[in-house]
């Protein structure tokens, strides 16, 4: 464990909590892409299957349970509790355009052709594109509420810190995980555009619609 990865995990947790609290406190999920949240819940589900087969550390186990619980809680709030505020008109990104290539790629490019490895690879590739429905929704509605932008900022920060973590681990342990790195860099690039808007436009974002 290094400071970059710890800060990255904390930033990831903060992002998830920001979104969950926003929905819970405002009792509304307007402007939030339920599709992205379902994809994130799917990412955690397919990645953390080893929760019951491999014990790495208390931290690892606790964080996996927390991420799973919070992501399912978010999906529950969007599609059940506050479903009447769900903006299905604008949350229309075709997730099959993400799932099909990701499934295909995870069968082609993986470390071992075993169910657990393929599901893990699927979750890595899926995570890199899971934010697309949310970014699409923001461009469609032409705006993002300030709290949603904080959510995206901390999500992007988590990815950037993971890249720093990989550089650090390569230098100190000679460790690198090619699939995770390639996918993580692609994911971070998607946030760069948003980061630019976030920094130049301040909190409220108006995308050129």
């Amino acid at each position: 464990m290094n400071i970059f990865r710890l800060a990255g995990d904390v930033s990831h947790l903060v992002a998830i909590l920001i979104l969950l609290m926003k929905i819970w406190r405002s009792k509304s999920c307007a402007g939030i892409s339920g599709r992205s949240q379902v994809l994130f819940a799917l990412v955690f589900t397919t990645r953390y299957l080893d929760l019951f087969t491999v014990y790495i550390s208390a931290y690892n186990t606790v964080m996996k349970v927390v991420f799973l619980a919070l992501s399912y809680a978010t999906v529950y709030l969007i599609y059940m509790r506050f479903r009447n505020s769900y903006d299905s008109e604008n949350d229309t990104f075709r997730v099959e355009f993400l799932l099909i290539p990701v499934i295909g790629l995870s069968f082609l490019e993986n470390y071992a052709f075993t169910p657990l490895e393929i599901l893990w690879t699927f979750s890595i590739f899926l995570e890199s594109v899971a934010i697309m429905p949310q970014l699409f929704m923001i461009t469609k509605t032409g705006e993002a509420e300030s709290i949603t932008t904080h959510y995206l900022f901390f999500l992007g920060l988590y990815r950037a810190l993971y890249i720093a973590n990989w550089v650090w681990r390569y230098h100190t342990e000679g460790f690198y995980d090619q699939i995770a790195i390639v996918s993580g860099v692609v994911q971070t690039i998607f946030y760069c555009d948003f980061f630019y808007l976030y920094v130049t436009r301040g909190e409220e974002i108006r995308t050129p619609s």
């Binding site: 990865r5 995990d9 990831h12 080893d50 491999v54 790495i56 550390s57 690892n60 964080m63 996996k64 991420f67 993986n110 470390y111 071992a112 052709f113 075993t114 490895e117 893990w120 993971y162 973590n165 460790f175 995980d177 995770a180």
Partner: peptide, 10 residues
């Protein structure tokens, strides 16, 4: 397929 890496990252 190189060996499956240790999955210690979240």
């Amino acid at each position: 397929d190189d060996e499956s890496k240790p999955k210690d990252e979240l």
